[in-house]
Amino acid sequence: MANNKNFLQNVVSEMKKVSWPTGQETVRYTTVVMLTVIFFLAFFYALDLGISAIIDLM
C-alpha cells in the first residue's frame, strides 16, 4: 500500500512540472489541426476524383 502512495505522490509531483497550454493556445492548435485535416480531405477527394475520371476514360 505504501508503494501505491509513493507512486501517486510521484505522479502528482511530475504533473506539477508539466507546462499546460493556455486556452488561447489550445484554440490555436485545434484550429491548425482542423484546417490541416480539411486541406488533406479536399486534396485526397480531388485526387480520387481525378483518378476515377482517368480510369473511366480507359
Rank of each mutant, 00 (worst) to 15 (best):
G23K: 12
A42L: 12
S52F: 04
L49P: 00
Y29E: 15
K5E: 13
F40Q: 02
F43R: 01
K17G: 03
P21Y: 01
T26R: 12
T30K: 09
A53V: 03
L49Q: 13
D56N: 11
W20I: 06
I38V: 13
T36V: 06
T22Q: 07
S52H: 09
L8N: 05
T30Y: 08
F44R: 00
A42F: 03
N3D: 13
Q24H: 08
V27F: 05
A53C: 08
V32S: 11
Y45C: 09
L35P: 00
K5P: 00
S13M: 11
N3K: 14
G23I: 05
A46W: 03
S19F: 03
T22L: 04
G50V: 00
Y45R: 04
Q24S: 12
S52I: 02
T36I: 04
N10C: 06
I51D: 06
L35H: 11
F40Y: 14
T30W: 05
A46H: 03
E25F: 01
A53M: 10
L35I: 12
N3C: 09
S19K: 15
D48H: 09
E14T: 07
T36F: 03
F7I: 04
V37T: 11
S19H: 15
P21L: 01
R28G: 00
T31F: 02
T26W: 04
L8K: 06
M34D: 11
D56K: 13
F44I: 01
Y45I: 11
M34F: 10
K5M: 13
S13D: 11
F43E: 01
Q9E: 14
Q9P: 00
V37A: 11
T22C: 04
T36S: 12
V11D: 02
T31R: 09
G50C: 02
Y29N: 14
W20E: 10
L47K: 08
L57K: 13
A53Q: 08
A42I: 05
S13L: 14
F40C: 01
Y45N: 06
F39Q: 03
N6K: 15
K16M: 10
L41Q: 03
V27W: 05
S19R: 10
V18I: 12
L57G: 05
A46K: 03
K16F: 07
M58D: 14
F40A: 02
G23W: 04
I51S: 08
